[in-house]
Simulated scan of single mutants.
Amino acid sequence: MLQQIYPSVNHSFVYELNKDLQFAAAHYIPSDLAGKCSRIHGHTYFMNVCIVGDVLDDTGFLVNFSDLKALIHDRFDHKLINEDPLFNEEQGNIFPSTEVVARTAWTIIQDYLDSLPNQPKCLQIFLRETPTSYVIYRPRIGDRS
């Protein structure tokens, strides 16, 4: 796993959990404006998920690391991301660009966190697509997309 320090978000929560994930996936951007990226190509994505909260669950976890892995790695690893139903070939705002994949991962994770009794929050998704390119998605307070 890529060892690095990720940009942090100031918050007042008691606990901050960070989980690094890695998955290999292919994608393409269905637009001629994307240049070479309009052709199918693959990446080894590195993701850091930052979750915060004040209350631990009955096992002493803010959230179980294996649940985060199942939500993201199991969904996207060794897949063509474009085939996932959360992406669309008609609307640029939901093409599987790195920005949109980061936002989508946040949505998947936050939807899961909303179902937990201790109500943790996903503050940030850091998604590295290549050794020289990454995106950070930080929703505004109250954002759901």
Rank of each mutant, 00 (worst) to 15 (best):
F65P: 02
N48A: 11
F46K: 13
V52A: 10
F61R: 06
L86F: 12
I51K: 10
S38I: 04
D84L: 05
Y28M: 08
D74G: 11
Y45P: 02
E83Q: 15
H27L: 02
N18A: 10
F23V: 03
F46T: 14
G35D: 02
H78I: 10
H73R: 11
D20N: 14
Q22M: 10
L80E: 08
F61D: 08
D32N: 14
K69T: 10
K69D: 11
R39F: 07
L62F: 05
K69E: 14
C37F: 00
Y28V: 01
C50P: 00
L68A: 01
V63F: 05
S66W: 08
V14P: 00
A34W: 09
I51F: 04
I81T: 05
Q22I: 13
C50M: 15
R39I: 04
V49P: 00
T59R: 15
K69A: 04
L33F: 10
D67E: 14
D67L: 03
C50Q: 13
I51N: 05
A25H: 06
P30E: 03
S31P: 03
G42P: 01
A25I: 10
G42M: 05
D58F: 03
S12Y: 10
S12C: 07
D58G: 03
S12E: 13
L33Q: 15
L68Q: 06
A24Q: 14
N64K: 12
A25K: 07
H78Q: 15
K79G: 01
L17A: 07
F76T: 00
K19E: 12
D20L: 07
V49G: 00
D77M: 08
V55N: 09
L86E: 04
A25E: 07
H11D: 09
L68W: 08
D77G: 06
S38H: 12
K79M: 13
H43S: 01
Q22R: 12
F23E: 04
G53T: 09
F23Y: 11
T44Q: 05
S38E: 08
D58W: 04
G53F: 06
F65M: 09
C37H: 09
L62I: 14
T59K: 15
G42V: 06
N48L: 10
D54M: 03
V52K: 05
T44L: 06
E83I: 10
L17M: 14
D20S: 11
E16L: 12
S38G: 03
D58P: 01
D57M: 09
Y45E: 02
D67W: 02
L21Y: 02
A34N: 09
P30M: 06
H11S: 04
F76S: 01
K79T: 15
Y15E: 07
H78V: 09
P85M: 07
H78L: 11
Q22E: 13
Q22T: 13
G42Q: 06
A24C: 14
R39E: 10
N18E: 15
S31E: 05
N82F: 01
V63H: 04
N48D: 10
S12F: 09
L21F: 06
H27M: 00
I72W: 01
A25W: 09
N64C: 07
D84S: 02
D20A: 13
V14I: 14
L62Y: 09
V63L: 07
D77W: 08
N64R: 12
D54Y: 08
I72L: 08
N64G: 00
H11Q: 09
F61N: 12
V14G: 01
A24I: 11
Q22Y: 13
F76H: 03
S31G: 01
D32K: 15
F46Y: 15
F13E: 11
V49Q: 02
E83A: 10
F46A: 10
D77H: 12
